[in-house]
């Protein structure tokens, strides 16, 4: 079965991973901008990163028949530096009309601080001014519930936002319901340690249905598994779920969501 990984940080992965993903049926990935493992010191550091996301990664993916899409922002960890964040937000429009750019992301909260919320709101302003879709990172572990509620508060309080054009990622058992009930898309991130497992993601599909639900691997520089989406796919099959249901979550839903972006020029595999 073909699938789409809607949240994977391929800059952190080797070319061998692209090959493996391709062999497992991955036909497209979307890569949000994120934290590099260290705080970048200048706006030019982000300019170089966005160049990598919009030029090098698409060409590296294409060698294995994978279509590469991306999202741009300054992530929540570095948003503590408000001055630098504002410089980056002012620079992002240089890249928004490049092929494969889907919108603003992954913006969000990390430790749920005032500075993070300030920069989140300024990213929302940018997305509204440029008519971009939004991809959102929610915090991990004990910060997730509080941070997700704060994010939903900011999103639902902004009348400009079309909720169908917003994907809230890293939902888990205690945050999936408020995200879906508010009319947003929700992404489940499969991780070996700190996030959700393929089994728990399958549980959430069974409990909440497939509507507006995506599943991703996050595959980054930490302990993570870039082939986690096929793990989910296999778990669903082992439980006897219909191929059409599985395909909806791993292929149809990402395409339906991303199709709202002018930068999404998906070529259906033959």
């Amino acid at each position: 079965m073909y699938y789409f990984d809607p949240h994977i940080h391929m800059v952190s992965r080797t070319t061998d991973d692209y090959e493996t993903l391709s062999k497992m049926g991955c036909v497209a990935v979307s890569e949000p901008a994120f934290w590099a493992g260290y705080d970048r010191g200048s706006v030019d550091g982000f300019r170089d990163y966005f160049e990598q996301l919009t030029s090098f990664e698409p060409s590296r993916a294409a060698q294995y028949g994978i279509q590469h899409y991306t999202w741009l922002c300054i992530n929540a960890k570095e948003a503590e530096n408000v001055e630098l964040s504002r410089e980056v937000i002012a620079m992002i429009p240089e890249f928004l009309n490049r092929p494969g750019v889907l919108g603003i992301g992954e913006i969000g909260l990390n430790k749920n601080t005032r500075n993070e919320a300030t920069i989140f709101l300024e990213h929302l302003d940018l997305a509204m001014e440029t008519n971009e879709q939004i991809l959102i990172h929610t915090p991990h572990l004990e910060d997730k519930h509080q941070g997700t509620r704060m994010i939903l508060d900011m999103l639902t309080g902004d009348q400009r936002i079309n909720r169908n054009r917003v994907l809230v990622d890293h939902v888990e058992e205690h945050t999936i319901r408020p995200v879906l009930d508010a009319g947003f898309w929700a992404g489940m991130t499969l991780y070996p340690v700190s996030k959700c497992t393929p089994e728990r993601a399958a549980d959430m599909v069974e409990m909440h249905g497939p509507d507006h639900l995506l599943v991703n691997s996050a595959g980054d520089w930490g302990p993570s598994k870039p082939t986690a989406v096929p793990d989910f796919l296999l778990e669903m099959r082992r439980r006897g779920h219909a191929e059409s249901l599985i395909r909806r979550v791993v292929y149809d839903n990402p395409i339906e969501f991303f199709s709202q972006s002018r930068g999404f020029n998906f070529q259906v595999p033959e």
Partner: peptide, 22 residues
Amino acid sequence: AEQIQLLFSREYSDQWRSEFQL
């Protein structure tokens, strides 16, 4: 699973914006 997730979560205050003066 949901109950245990909430048990391990920090409390949410719906007054957070006024507390942050945002």
